[in-house]
Each structure stands twice: as C-alpha cells, then as structure tokens.
Amino acid sequence: MSETTGNVRLQPGDPAPPFTLPDADGTPVSLADFQGRKVIVYFYPAAMTPGCTKQACDFSENLADLADAGYAVVGISPDKPEKLAKFRDAENLSVTLLSDPDKQVLRAYGAYGEKRLYGKTTVGVIRSTFVVDEDGRIERALYNVKATGHVAKLRKDLGI
C-alpha cells in the first residue's frame, strides 16, 4: 500500500485546513485572510495546460459575479510563483493563484494522491473544489471535477 492511498476526503462541516502560501508575486495569502467571507478554494494540476487554463479563465470571467454573491476565489497548484505570474499575465487572469510546491496543502485537502487518468492509475493533483464558509468550515467538497463547465455548474449549485 502506497502512502498516497487512503487519502483524506473532506466532508461538509469539517474545518478547512489552514494554509499560508505565496501568490504569483510571492505575497503570502492565508485562509485566515478570508475569515468572515466565503471562499472557493480550487486545486488544479498545472498552470499553462489546456484544462487548467480553461478553468482559471472561467473563474476569472465569473469573478465579479462570485464576488457580488460574497465569494472570494483562490486557485492552488504545485507551480512555483514565477510560473503562476507568467500564467496570470499570459491569460490575463484576475483569480488569485497560490503556489504549493511541497504539496502540503494539496494533501491536507485530499487533492493529491492516486487518480485514474486514461485508464491508468497515477499519482498527482486531483482537480478539486471546496467552498469554505465564513467560519472556516467546508460547505462543499467536490473531488475529480471537470475543468470545462465546472464554474457554470458551481454557480448553478450555489444559486449565483
């Protein structure tokens, strides 16, 4: 049995694992910064790949509506801040991107581990989205989400 099996899976009502990670400019951003607000935390495998670009663009395009509904949005990947800055600038992204190269936050949220890709079991980032409430608790935990159409589905589910 490998260390990646038996992944933690967060459930609604669980406390959201705290984090402080650098953004694309190297500025630390903490989950605690959003206390009193709802925040959508999404995990994606890699900046500047087709699916992740589509997802980040979708979140950026919907950011104003999400903010109007009381939601902040944070995207987390294992990419270093320099790559996130290139990604943000190349795609004109407005969503906050955070760097987790050690994958500690990815693991804490159960967003890193074994996954099936093209019929093979691999280890990597599990595309996941979490809605964290004003008190820092998991409101929704969505694992293995699709990159395309996910933001539209999330908006529908949240009534936005």
Rank of each mutant, 00 (worst) to 15 (best):
D14V: 09
D25V: 00
S128G: 12
G113W: 05
F34I: 12
K80I: 07
A90C: 02
P28I: 06
T49N: 12
F130T: 08
K86P: 02
E134C: 12
F59N: 05
A24C: 04
A24S: 13
G36Y: 11
C52P: 01
V41G: 07
T49H: 06
L63W: 00
L84W: 00
P28A: 04
E91M: 10
E3A: 14
A85T: 03
D65A: 07
T148Q: 13
G51S: 06
T20N: 14
T53D: 06
P45W: 02
D100C: 03
V132T: 07
T121K: 01
D102C: 02
L21K: 10
P15F: 12
D79K: 03
G110K: 11
L117V: 14
G113Y: 08
K156D: 08
M1Q: 11
D79C: 08
K86G: 05
D65S: 08
G113F: 07
I160W: 02
A90F: 02
P28M: 03
K86D: 15
T27R: 12
P50G: 05
G136L: 06
V125G: 04
L106N: 15
Y44P: 11
L93M: 04
R9M: 15
A24H: 09
A32Q: 10
A108S: 15
G110D: 07
A32I: 04
L63F: 04
V8M: 13
N92M: 03
Q35A: 15
L142A: 08
P17F: 01
F130I: 11
K38R: 15
V39E: 08
D133L: 10
I126F: 01
L154Y: 05
C52F: 00
L66Y: 02
S2V: 04
G124P: 04
S2N: 15
Q11T: 14
G110C: 13
A67G: 09
